[in-house]
Design a protein around this nucleic acid. Sequence first.
DNA 1: TATTGTTATACTCTATAACTATA
DNA 2: TATAGTTATAGAGTATAACAATA
Lengths: 149, 149
Amino acid sequence: MNGSNGAADDINFGALGEMLGYRLRRAQLTFFSNFAAVCSDLGVSPGLFGVLSIAKENPGLTQTAVAQALGNDRSAMVAAVDKLEQLNLIERRPSKRDRRSYALYLTEHGQEFYTELVDRVIKHEEKLCERLKPGEKEWLVEVLGRFSS
Amino acid sequence: MNGSNGAADDINFGALGEMLGYRLRRAQLTFFSNFAAVCSDLGVSPGLFGVLSIAKENPGLTQTAVAQALGNDRSAMVAAVDKLEQLNLIERRPSKRDRRSYALYLTEHGQEFYTELVDRVIKHEEKLCERLKPGEKEWLVEVLGRFSS
DNA sequence: TATTGTTATACTCTATAACTATA
DNA sequence: TATAGTTATAGAGTATAACAATA
Protein backbone atom coordinates (compact mmCIF):
# COMPACT_ATOMS: atom_id res chain seq x y z
CA MET A 1 0.00 0.00 0.00
CA ASN A 2 1.70 3.14 -1.21
CA GLY A 3 1.14 6.17 -3.33
CA SER A 4 0.53 9.84 -2.73
CA ASN A 5 -1.89 8.99 0.03
CA GLY A 6 -1.65 7.74 3.59
CA ALA A 7 1.88 6.40 3.48
CA ALA A 8 4.27 6.98 6.38
CA ASP A 9 7.35 7.20 4.15
CA ASP A 10 9.07 10.38 3.08
CA ILE A 11 7.44 12.45 5.78
CA ASN A 12 8.22 16.15 5.68
CA PHE A 13 8.66 17.39 9.22
CA GLY A 14 8.83 21.04 8.27
CA ALA A 15 9.49 23.39 11.17
CA LEU A 16 9.09 20.52 13.63
CA GLY A 17 12.32 18.91 12.50
CA GLU A 18 14.32 21.98 13.50
CA MET A 19 12.55 22.47 16.82
CA LEU A 20 14.74 21.85 19.81
CA GLY A 21 11.74 21.06 22.03
CA TYR A 22 10.65 18.27 19.73
CA ARG A 23 14.14 16.83 19.37
CA LEU A 24 14.56 16.88 23.13
CA ARG A 25 11.30 15.02 23.64
CA ARG A 26 12.16 12.31 21.13
CA ALA A 27 15.66 11.86 22.50
CA GLN A 28 14.43 11.72 26.07
CA LEU A 29 11.83 9.12 25.11
CA THR A 30 14.59 6.96 23.69
CA PHE A 31 16.67 7.27 26.85
CA PHE A 32 13.75 6.58 29.19
CA SER A 33 12.43 3.55 27.35
CA ASN A 34 15.94 2.18 27.14
CA PHE A 35 16.41 2.84 30.86
CA ALA A 36 13.18 0.99 31.60
CA ALA A 37 14.28 -1.98 29.49
CA VAL A 38 17.58 -2.15 31.38
CA CYS A 39 16.37 -1.46 34.94
CA SER A 40 12.68 -2.35 35.22
CA ASP A 41 13.51 -5.81 36.58
CA LEU A 42 15.04 -4.02 39.57
CA GLY A 43 11.89 -1.96 40.11
CA VAL A 44 13.78 1.29 39.52
CA SER A 45 12.42 3.98 37.20
CA PRO A 46 14.38 7.04 36.06
CA GLY A 47 12.57 9.07 38.71
CA LEU A 48 13.44 6.67 41.51
CA PHE A 49 17.04 6.60 40.32
CA GLY A 50 17.13 10.37 40.72
CA VAL A 51 15.84 10.23 44.28
CA LEU A 52 18.30 7.47 45.10
CA SER A 53 21.22 9.43 43.64
CA ILE A 54 20.47 12.60 45.58
CA ALA A 55 19.93 10.66 48.82
CA LYS A 56 23.13 8.70 48.28
CA GLU A 57 25.28 11.76 47.67
CA ASN A 58 23.63 13.93 50.33
CA PRO A 59 22.79 11.77 53.36
CA GLY A 60 20.31 13.24 55.81
CA LEU A 61 18.40 15.46 53.39
CA THR A 62 14.69 15.96 53.98
CA GLN A 63 12.13 14.79 51.43
CA THR A 64 11.37 18.38 50.53
CA ALA A 65 15.02 19.15 49.92
CA VAL A 66 15.34 16.16 47.60
CA ALA A 67 12.21 17.26 45.75
CA GLN A 68 13.61 20.77 45.28
CA ALA A 69 16.92 19.41 44.03
CA LEU A 70 15.08 17.34 41.42
CA GLY A 71 12.64 20.11 40.52
CA ASN A 72 9.61 18.12 41.63
CA ASP A 73 6.77 18.82 44.00
CA ARG A 74 7.29 17.41 47.49
CA SER A 75 3.99 15.52 47.29
CA ALA A 76 5.59 13.30 44.65
CA MET A 77 8.25 12.25 47.15
CA VAL A 78 5.87 10.25 49.31
CA ALA A 79 5.20 7.44 46.86
CA ALA A 80 8.81 7.48 45.68
CA VAL A 81 10.32 7.13 49.15
CA ASP A 82 7.65 4.59 50.07
CA LYS A 83 8.71 2.43 47.15
CA LEU A 84 12.41 2.81 47.87
CA GLU A 85 11.70 1.92 51.48
CA GLN A 86 9.79 -1.20 50.42
CA LEU A 87 12.81 -2.18 48.33
CA ASN A 88 14.92 -1.75 51.48
CA LEU A 89 17.07 0.81 49.68
CA ILE A 90 16.32 3.93 51.67
CA GLU A 91 15.48 4.75 55.26
CA ARG A 92 13.38 7.49 56.84
CA ARG A 93 14.97 8.54 60.12
CA PRO A 94 13.17 11.05 62.33
CA SER A 95 15.03 14.34 62.23
CA LYS A 96 16.39 15.39 65.60
CA ARG A 97 16.17 19.08 64.84
CA ASP A 98 12.67 19.18 63.39
CA ARG A 99 10.10 16.63 64.40
CA ARG A 100 8.01 17.38 61.33
CA SER A 101 10.58 16.03 58.90
CA TYR A 102 12.53 12.92 58.08
CA ALA A 103 16.18 12.60 57.25
CA LEU A 104 16.77 10.24 54.32
CA TYR A 105 19.61 7.72 54.30
CA LEU A 106 20.49 4.82 52.08
CA THR A 107 20.40 1.48 53.87
CA GLU A 108 23.46 -0.74 53.82
CA HIS A 109 21.77 -2.77 51.11
CA GLY A 110 20.92 0.48 49.34
CA GLN A 111 24.59 1.41 49.19
CA GLU A 112 25.58 -1.86 47.53
CA PHE A 113 22.52 -1.81 45.30
CA TYR A 114 23.23 1.72 44.17
CA THR A 115 26.80 0.86 43.21
CA GLU A 116 25.58 -1.93 40.94
CA LEU A 117 22.71 0.16 39.66
CA VAL A 118 24.94 3.08 38.65
CA ASP A 119 27.16 0.62 36.83
CA ARG A 120 24.21 -0.70 34.89
CA VAL A 121 22.85 2.77 34.13
CA ILE A 122 26.23 4.00 32.93
CA LYS A 123 26.52 1.01 30.61
CA HIS A 124 23.05 1.76 29.26
CA GLU A 125 24.10 5.35 28.55
CA GLU A 126 27.37 4.28 26.98
CA LYS A 127 25.47 1.95 24.68
CA LEU A 128 23.24 4.79 23.51
CA CYS A 129 26.19 7.17 23.29
CA GLU A 130 27.86 5.02 20.67
CA ARG A 131 26.03 7.34 18.30
CA LEU A 132 28.19 10.22 19.55
CA LYS A 133 31.67 11.27 18.59
CA PRO A 134 34.40 11.73 21.20
CA GLY A 135 33.69 14.70 23.44
CA GLU A 136 30.12 15.17 22.29
CA LYS A 137 28.56 13.65 25.40
CA GLU A 138 30.39 15.98 27.78
CA TRP A 139 29.44 18.86 25.52
CA LEU A 140 25.79 17.78 25.54
CA VAL A 141 25.72 17.49 29.33
CA GLU A 142 27.12 20.99 29.67
CA VAL A 143 24.84 22.59 27.11
CA LEU A 144 21.67 20.85 28.34
CA GLY A 145 22.56 21.92 31.87
CA ARG A 146 21.98 25.50 30.77
CA PHE A 147 18.30 24.62 30.31
CA SER A 148 17.87 23.05 33.75
CA SER A 149 16.45 26.14 35.42
CA MET B 1 16.94 27.16 58.85
CA ASN B 2 20.24 25.82 57.71
CA GLY B 3 23.08 23.62 58.80
CA SER B 4 24.29 20.15 57.91
CA ASN B 5 20.72 18.90 57.82
CA GLY B 6 17.80 19.19 55.46
CA ALA B 7 18.99 22.16 53.43
CA ALA B 8 18.53 22.24 49.67
CA ASP B 9 21.72 24.21 49.05
CA ASP B 10 25.01 22.80 47.84
CA ILE B 11 23.43 19.61 46.57
CA ASN B 12 25.83 17.03 45.24
CA PHE B 13 24.30 15.42 42.18
CA GLY B 14 26.95 12.74 41.87
CA ALA B 15 26.56 10.49 38.83
CA LEU B 16 23.17 12.02 38.09
CA GLY B 17 24.74 15.31 37.06
CA GLU B 18 26.66 13.63 34.24
CA MET B 19 23.76 11.49 33.05
CA LEU B 20 22.48 12.42 29.64
CA GLY B 21 19.05 10.98 30.35
CA TYR B 22 18.59 13.23 33.35
CA ARG B 23 19.86 16.32 31.55
CA LEU B 24 17.52 15.60 28.65
CA ARG B 25 14.56 15.28 31.00
CA ARG B 26 15.28 18.55 32.76
CA ALA B 27 15.88 20.45 29.54
CA GLN B 28 12.75 19.05 27.96
CA LEU B 29 10.71 20.04 31.01
CA THR B 30 11.94 23.60 30.61
CA PHE B 31 11.00 23.67 26.94
CA PHE B 32 7.57 22.13 27.49
CA SER B 33 6.55 24.34 30.40
CA ASN B 34 7.74 27.36 28.46
CA PHE B 35 5.79 26.18 25.41
CA ALA B 36 2.67 25.81 27.56
CA ALA B 37 3.10 29.32 28.96
CA VAL B 38 3.38 30.73 25.45
CA CYS B 39 0.70 28.68 23.65
CA SER B 40 -1.82 27.37 26.20
CA ASP B 41 -4.15 30.30 25.52
CA LEU B 42 -4.47 28.94 21.99
CA GLY B 43 -5.36 25.48 23.28
CA VAL B 44 -2.30 23.95 21.62
CA SER B 45 0.01 21.60 23.52
CA PRO B 46 3.39 20.41 22.22
CA GLY B 47 1.73 17.16 21.15
CA LEU B 48 -1.00 18.93 19.19
CA PHE B 49 1.59 21.15 17.59
CA GLY B 50 3.36 18.04 16.35
CA VAL B 51 0.20 16.63 14.78
CA LEU B 52 -0.58 19.98 13.21
CA SER B 53 2.94 20.27 11.76
CA ILE B 54 2.90 16.83 10.17
CA ALA B 55 -0.59 17.35 8.77
CA LYS B 56 0.36 20.77 7.42
CA GLU B 57 3.48 19.56 5.63
CA ASN B 58 1.98 16.29 4.42
CA PRO B 59 -1.64 16.88 3.40
CA GLY B 60 -3.80 13.79 3.04
CA LEU B 61 -1.96 11.59 5.50
CA THR B 62 -3.96 9.05 7.49
CA GLN B 63 -4.15 9.22 11.27
CA THR B 64 -2.02 6.11 11.56
CA ALA B 65 0.65 7.58 9.30
CA VAL B 66 0.81 10.74 11.42
CA ALA B 67 1.06 8.63 14.57
CA GLN B 68 3.95 6.63 13.09
CA ALA B 69 5.76 9.78 12.03
CA LEU B 70 5.51 11.12 15.58
CA GLY B 71 6.37 7.79 17.19
CA ASN B 72 3.02 7.54 18.97
CA ASP B 73 0.34 4.89 19.09
CA ARG B 74 -2.52 5.45 16.64
CA SER B 75 -5.05 5.30 19.50
CA ALA B 76 -3.63 8.59 20.76
CA MET B 77 -4.53 10.27 17.46
CA VAL B 78 -8.28 10.11 18.07
CA ALA B 79 -8.41 12.63 20.90
CA ALA B 80 -5.76 14.80 19.26
CA VAL B 81 -7.54 15.06 15.92
CA ASP B 82 -10.88 15.48 17.72
CA LYS B 83 -9.48 18.51 19.52
CA LEU B 84 -7.90 19.99 16.41
CA GLU B 85 -11.18 19.48 14.61
CA GLN B 86 -13.06 21.27 17.40
CA LEU B 87 -10.65 24.16 17.01
CA ASN B 88 -11.48 24.16 13.30
CA LEU B 89 -7.82 23.66 12.44
CA ILE B 90 -7.92 20.25 10.85
CA GLU B 91 -10.33 18.27 8.74
CA ARG B 92 -11.06 14.55 8.42
CA ARG B 93 -11.90 13.76 4.81
CA PRO B 94 -12.99 10.24 3.90
CA SER B 95 -10.23 8.56 1.93
CA LYS B 96 -11.25 7.62 -1.58
CA ARG B 97 -8.83 4.72 -1.76
CA ASP B 98 -9.55 3.11 1.58
CA ARG B 99 -12.93 3.55 3.20
CA ARG B 100 -11.52 2.58 6.58
CA SER B 101 -9.33 5.63 6.85
CA TYR B 102 -9.45 9.40 6.84
CA ALA B 103 -7.21 11.80 5.01
CA LEU B 104 -6.17 14.72 7.21
CA TYR B 105 -6.05 18.27 5.89
CA LEU B 106 -5.61 21.63 7.51
CA THR B 107 -8.64 23.88 7.13
CA GLU B 108 -8.22 27.31 5.62
CA HIS B 109 -8.29 28.73 9.12
CA GLY B 110 -5.82 26.05 10.16
CA GLN B 111 -3.37 27.26 7.52
CA GLU B 112 -3.45 30.84 8.78
CA PHE B 113 -3.45 29.73 12.39
CA TYR B 114 -0.44 27.48 11.85
CA THR B 115 1.56 30.30 10.27
CA GLU B 116 1.02 32.49 13.32
CA LEU B 117 1.54 29.57 15.68
CA VAL B 118 4.90 28.61 14.16
CA ASP B 119 5.96 32.22 14.47
CA ARG B 120 5.09 32.20 18.14
CA VAL B 121 6.76 28.85 18.77
CA ILE B 122 9.94 29.91 16.99
CA LYS B 123 10.10 33.06 19.09
CA HIS B 124 9.68 30.96 22.23
CA GLU B 125 12.57 28.75 21.13
CA GLU B 126 14.74 31.71 20.23
CA LYS B 127 14.13 33.18 23.67
CA LEU B 128 15.30 29.96 25.32
CA CYS B 129 18.19 29.62 22.90
CA GLU B 130 19.70 32.88 24.06
CA ARG B 131 21.62 30.58 26.39
CA LEU B 132 23.36 29.06 23.38
CA LYS B 133 26.33 30.25 21.39
CA PRO B 134 26.15 30.69 17.62
CA GLY B 135 25.82 27.35 15.85
CA GLU B 136 25.06 25.38 18.98
CA LYS B 137 21.34 25.05 18.27
CA GLU B 138 21.87 23.56 14.83
CA TRP B 139 24.42 21.23 16.32
CA LEU B 140 22.02 20.19 19.08
CA VAL B 141 19.22 19.48 16.60
CA GLU B 142 21.54 17.28 14.56
CA VAL B 143 22.97 15.39 17.52
CA LEU B 144 19.62 14.86 19.25
CA GLY B 145 18.21 13.61 15.97
CA ARG B 146 20.54 10.65 16.25
CA PHE B 147 18.54 9.53 19.30
CA SER B 148 15.14 9.77 17.62
CA SER B 149 14.92 6.11 16.68
C1' DT C 1 -6.14 -12.60 7.84
C1' DA C 2 -4.67 -7.92 8.36
C1' DT C 3 -5.48 -3.04 9.00
C1' DT C 4 -8.13 1.65 10.28
C1' DG C 5 -10.36 4.18 13.43
C1' DT C 6 -12.32 3.78 17.69
C1' DT C 7 -13.38 2.82 22.63
C1' DA C 8 -12.36 1.33 27.12
C1' DT C 9 -8.98 0.93 30.19
C1' DA C 10 -4.92 1.48 32.86
C1' DC C 11 -0.61 3.14 34.25
C1' DT C 12 2.81 6.77 34.94
C1' DC C 13 4.03 11.32 35.90
C1' DT C 14 2.93 15.55 37.69
C1' DA C 15 0.63 19.31 40.07
C1' DT C 16 -2.89 21.39 43.41
C1' DA C 17 -5.39 21.81 47.56
C1' DA C 18 -6.28 20.65 52.07
C1' DC C 19 -5.23 18.25 56.38
C1' DT C 20 -1.99 17.23 60.80
C1' DA C 21 1.65 17.98 63.48
C1' DT C 22 4.92 20.57 64.38
C1' DA C 23 7.83 25.09 64.15
C1' DT D 1 1.78 32.28 60.62
C1' DA D 2 4.55 29.16 58.17
C1' DT D 3 6.50 24.61 57.01
C1' DA D 4 7.06 19.05 56.51
C1' DG D 5 4.87 15.13 55.37
C1' DT D 6 0.74 13.28 53.86
C1' DT D 7 -3.63 12.36 51.34
C1' DA D 8 -6.97 12.86 47.85
C1' DT D 9 -7.58 14.19 43.51
C1' DA D 10 -7.17 15.52 38.84
C1' DG D 11 -4.96 16.28 34.54
C1' DA D 12 -1.77 15.08 30.89
C1' DG D 13 0.54 11.59 28.26
C1' DT D 14 1.01 7.06 26.77
C1' DA D 15 0.18 2.20 25.96
C1' DT D 16 -2.68 -2.25 25.39
C1' DA D 17 -6.59 -4.91 24.10
C1' DA D 18 -10.63 -5.53 21.74
C1' DC D 19 -14.33 -4.31 18.43
C1' DA D 20 -16.70 -3.02 13.74
C1' DA D 21 -15.93 -1.83 9.15
C1' DT D 22 -13.15 -2.58 5.45
C1' DA D 23 -9.14 -4.37 2.88
